[in-house]
């Protein structure tokens, strides 16, 4: 216990000061409002206290002017909360270009973390300061929630889908990582630390781990192992659509719908291949539901992503 009383947690991300400022604005307005009401009640209660038992005060009707005033003014003040809060929230949900990627899997009751270049950690996340970090969040079982109070960010980790969130650490240090969504027996033990490090320290840390190769390399092995390679890598389309250059591209589905081949699409197509069938192909792929865990799925997606170098041009082509 460093200090007996604190009102703010560490502020260590690119948005944490802004969230605190908004919080202070809300606190200020709320305090003023509370005081106004308390003082009004206190003043009236004393000023107009009953002096004789039989006293009957003159009735006062309402006042339309006052009603409008105390509906409109608070609402306008609330609109300031809404506008500021929404602006900041949208900013917090839109990851900037050029960030690094980290893949997080929540599991009763631990956080498993993979860095694309190889290192894996449990309940610890090392990140450099000054770089946007994009997190892809997957759950093996129930809903968890990735929460770093010092960064003022939180995102539920929902089974069956990939959620994303980003942050940019601004101050080196060691910060709490909590699971915020109740997930069973050891929910309060599903905690860890985020280490925000100077760039060079981070590079040093990164070079220390990752003996098993990058996520994409591990994904490639799994791609072979599960037999995906036998069909999905042919250059000319055979029975299956090729995954080469697939990532990020628009895919035309049976029925004319178009979807972007992003992480969620790839994940769904592995686990539930019949959900979205590519135009011109038959639904012959077996499901891998229950056979590949979330960590491995993220590796396979990383591998497919690594094949998608020429994908960028094709996106442009379809747009034209």
């Amino acid at each position: 216990m460093r200090e007996l009383f604190r009102f703010f947690p560490d502020s260590a991300s690119s948005i944490s000061d802004a969230v605190d400022a908004l919080y202070l604005w809300l606190t200020t307005v709320s305090t003023i409002m509370t005081l106004l009401i308390f003082l009004a009640i206190g003043y009236f209660a004393i000023r107009y206290r009953r002096r004789e038992p039989g006293e009957v005060p003159a009735p006062v009707l309402g006042s339309l002017r006052l009603e409008i005033l105390w509906s409109v003014i608070p609402f306008l003040v609330m609109l300031s909360f809404f506008t500021w809060g929404t602006y900041l929230y949208f900013h917090s949900q839109t990851s900037p270009k050029g960030g690094m990627e980290v893949f997080i899997t929540g599991k009763q009751w631990m956080w498993k973390i993979q860095h694309p270049s190889g290192p894996r950690e449990i309940n610890e996340l090392h990140v450099p300061i000054g770089v946007p970090v994009n997190l892809t969040l997957a759950s093996e079982d129930v809903i968890h929630s990735f929460y770093v109070p010092a960064f003022r960010i939180k995102k539920d980790v929902v089974p069956g889908r990939l959620n994303r969130v980003w942050f940019q650490a601004t101050k080196p240090g060691k910060y709490h990582l909590f699971c915020a969504e109740y997930c069973g027996t050891e929910h309060s033990g599903m905690i860890g630390w985020v280490y925000a490090m100077e760039r060079h320290e981070y590079e040093q840390w990164l070079s220390g781990g990752g003996g098993e190769g990058s996520m994409a390399t591990r994904g490639e092995k799994l791609f072979q192992q599960y037999g995906c390679a036998s069909c999905h890598t042919m250059e000319t389309a055979g029975r299956c659509p090729s995954v080469r250059g697939l990532y990020g591209r628009q895919v035309l589905l049976r029925g004319g719908e178009q979807v972007t081949a992003d992480d969620s699409y790839l994940r769904e197509s592995i686990l539930n291949p019949r959900a979205k069938i590519v135009a011109g192909f038959e639904p012959i792929m077996p499901t891998f539901q229950g056979q590949i865990n979330e960590e491995s799925l993220l590796q396979i997606i990383a591998y497919i992503k690594s094949l998608g170098v020429e994908g960028g041009e094709e996106v442009e082509a379809t747009k034209k």
Partner: peptide, 24 residues
């Protein structure tokens, strides 16, 4: 008094960027 405080703190959690931090 207490409902006022409860109501005003409801505005905090209706503000999305604040809820991001204090949710759960």
């Amino acid at each position: 008094g207490l409902f006022t405080i409860g109501g005003l703190t409801g505005l905090f959690v209706a503000t999305m960027a604040i809820d991001l931090h204090v949710h759960d």
